[in-house]
């Protein structure tokens, strides 16, 4: 796949991320830790441009420039008090990016005319040999077809569906936390009759759609899954009160990390897998620590308003 030197650079980047988290845990080394993390990210991105066969280079560099200027400008300009909602917004767009990447990867075999054969556990990527495509009339090399078939195996499809769902939840949930902290909507918990049942129903629908997407490899179902994920993110954050919102941002941050990790599995990119997992795991610990520092538990923050609503009603 990609050259060995590039994979070694990815390992260096992964170590940088571990050192960054370690550094950020102590006041003395925090700032240096953040810089080490930024260096690791820069290394990873530069290596990716060189090691992979990248078309559309001009467009991509332009998009990177837009994002970099926008991100740096926003981060420099924002008022100190508005930093938490900016972090929420950055976290949300990261989740959105992960979901889009997974959707596009899923659409690749379909665009090449490859469909998943019947059978949920049909994991033998060799079935593509029976595909009408293997006469290479579509201009696909055997290696390319193998890669596309791999994207339709149950393991990869599960990771794809997970990335799409969790990325969408993180995106819409983060937007709601942003609106709450920015006081564009009320900071008070928003509940409505039957809220827990609606939320439960949406979760069941998401799970069902996820399994269905894995079984069929259908892009249409994956898009519906993404929409249901967006709805679930909104319903997750609406009942949370303003003071508890930072803890929910931390939780959604861990979610995005896991979505990125699963995206790394789909792309067979070990760096994305490690970086995403590190954030997912450390974010979970951090969320619990933050809740404990406020004398709350994570479940009481997420579902407390539901309980309060039911006793009042």
């Amino acid at each position: 796949m990609i050259p060995v030197w590039a994979q070694v650079c990815y390992v260096v980047a992964a170590v940088c991320f571990i050192l960054a988290l370690k550094g950020l845990s102590s006041p003395k080394s925090a700032r240096r830790g953040n810089l080490i993390g930024a260096f690791g990210a820069l290394l990873a991105v530069v290596v990716t441009f060189i090691a992979y066969d990248i078309d559309n280079l001009g467009w991509i560099l332009a998009a990177v420039a837009v994002g970099a200027i926008g991100g740096a400008w926003g981060a420099r300009r924002v008022a100190m008090t508005a930093m938490p909602q900016l972090v929420a917004l950055f976290n949300g767009v990261g989740g959105g990016a992960a979901a889009l990447v997974a959707l596009l990867e899923l659409s690749e075999p379909a665009r090449a005319g490859l469909v998943k054969p019947d059978g949920f556990f049909n994991n033998d990527a060799g079935w593509f040999a029976y595909s009408p495509l293997n006469d290479e009339s579509g201009g696909h090399s055997l290696e390319e077809l193998e890669r596309l078939a791999q994207l339709l195996t149950t393991g990869t499809l599960t990771a794809t569906a997970f990335t799409i769902l969790i990325g969408a939840v993180s995106f819409s949930g983060s937007v709601i936390t942003f609106l709450k902290l920015q006081e564009l909507m009320t900071g008070r918990p928003i509940t409505f009759p039957g809220g827990p049942f609606v939320f439960g129903g949406v979760l069941v629908a998401a799970l069902g759609l996820g399994v269905w997407t894995v079984a069929t490899g259908s892009v249409t179902l994956a898009i519906i899954l993404a929409i249901v994920g967006l709805l679930a993110g909104v319903l997750l954050v609406l009942p949370v009160g303003g003071a508890d919102v930072p803890i929910v941002i931390s939780l959604l941050n861990a979610f995005t990390g896991l979505a990125v990790a699963a995206g790394g599995y789909v792309l067979e990119n070990a760096l994305l897998l490690v970086a995403g997992t590190l954030v997912g795991a450390s974010g979970t610990i951090l969320t619990r620590a933050m809740a404990r520092a406020m004398g709350r538990s994570v479940s009481s923050i997420l579902f407390g308003a539901f309980k309060g609503g039911s006793t009042a009603g």
Binding site: A13, F17, A20, L21, L24, G33, N34, G37, A38, A41, A44, V45, T48, V64, V87, F90, N91, G94, A97, A98, L100, V101, N253, T256, G257, V260, G263, G264, L267, N269, L271, L272, A275, G276, L278, V279, S282, G283, L286
Partner: peptide
């Protein structure tokens, strides 16, 4: 900082 690290999804994008 952890939030920034999962921005490496840029590599995937």
């Amino acid at each position: 900082g952890a939030n920034a690290i999962h921005g490496v999804i840029l590599v995937g994008s």
